[in-house]
Simulated assay, not measured.
Amino acid sequence: MFTGIVECMGSVVEFAALDTTAAGGNGASLTISGAKQILGDCHLGDSIAINGTCLTVTEFTDDTFKVGVAPETLSRTNLGQLVKGAPVNLERALAAGHRFGGHFVQGHIDATAEIVEITPDANSVWYKLRVSDPKLMPYIIPKGFIAMDGTSLTVCDVSDDQAWFTIMMIAYTQTHVIMPTKKVGDLVNVEVDMLGKYVEKVATSILRGPSSEAEGSSYIEKIVQRVIEKNAGK
């Protein structure tokens, strides 16, 4: 679990599509440098979010660490586009007893979003983004939470029909995350608020009722039947 409060920015040393070393596991791997700030208590197997993606540390030094990247992760995120020297947002998994400054972030990227507009506003910046999967729009609401490249941000405007949303980034945040290094057309990792997903799952299960007719009618059907019976008795 993460909070979306980026601890530091690192940079890509290498993205290896096929890493045959013991730490690479014969799959894709990422090696990140400039991470000394978050590696003082690091252990093999720990979780670190890179651009909001929860990944497992397979090797580390005082300043660098390596993680494996699964094919599913590459298909859903912008990690496969990272090149040597690219900046990345870094956050360790949340430790018990620490102040919670952002929102509940799992580090499980839902999709990417394309930056379609960047508009300065005094010392802040507006970003307008279009999500690659319109099915995510029900979970993106005005004044709700969203994690973008692992940064906890507040949604401003939303267009469900056109699958876009906006956020405004204050001056302080601009100096502590990688978003200002991006340009129109770049992709950003997006994780929507997981609480909305859980609410939908529970509500849908209740409204749909049992999965088979043998188990009885759905919750809605039962309510309708009660109303009919009540009115028929008048």
Rank of each mutant, 00 (worst) to 15 (best):
I140E: 00
D160F: 14
K84R: 14
I170V: 15
P138Y: 11
T173L: 04
I141N: 01
R130K: 14
P120M: 08
Y139A: 11
R76C: 08
D157H: 13
A171L: 06
G101F: 13
I115A: 05
L79G: 07
T58I: 10
F65R: 03
L74V: 09
T56H: 05
R99M: 12
T173D: 10
I118Y: 02
I146T: 02
V131D: 08
T58L: 11
W126V: 08
A93V: 11
L82T: 02
V177D: 01
V83H: 09
K183R: 13
I141R: 00
H98I: 08
A86D: 15
T181N: 11
I178G: 11
E59C: 11
D110A: 00
R99L: 14
A171W: 05
S159M: 09
L94I: 12
M179T: 12
D149C: 02
E114C: 08
F60W: 01
L82Y: 09
I146D: 00
M148N: 14
G102N: 04
I146R: 02
P180H: 02
A122G: 03
V57E: 04
T175A: 12
D161K: 15
L90N: 04
P120A: 01
I118S: 05
T166H: 07
F65P: 00
P180R: 03
V105E: 10
N123K: 15
M168Q: 08
T77W: 15
L74T: 07
E91T: 07
S75L: 05
T175F: 09
G97N: 05
A171C: 06
T173E: 11
S159N: 14
Y172G: 00
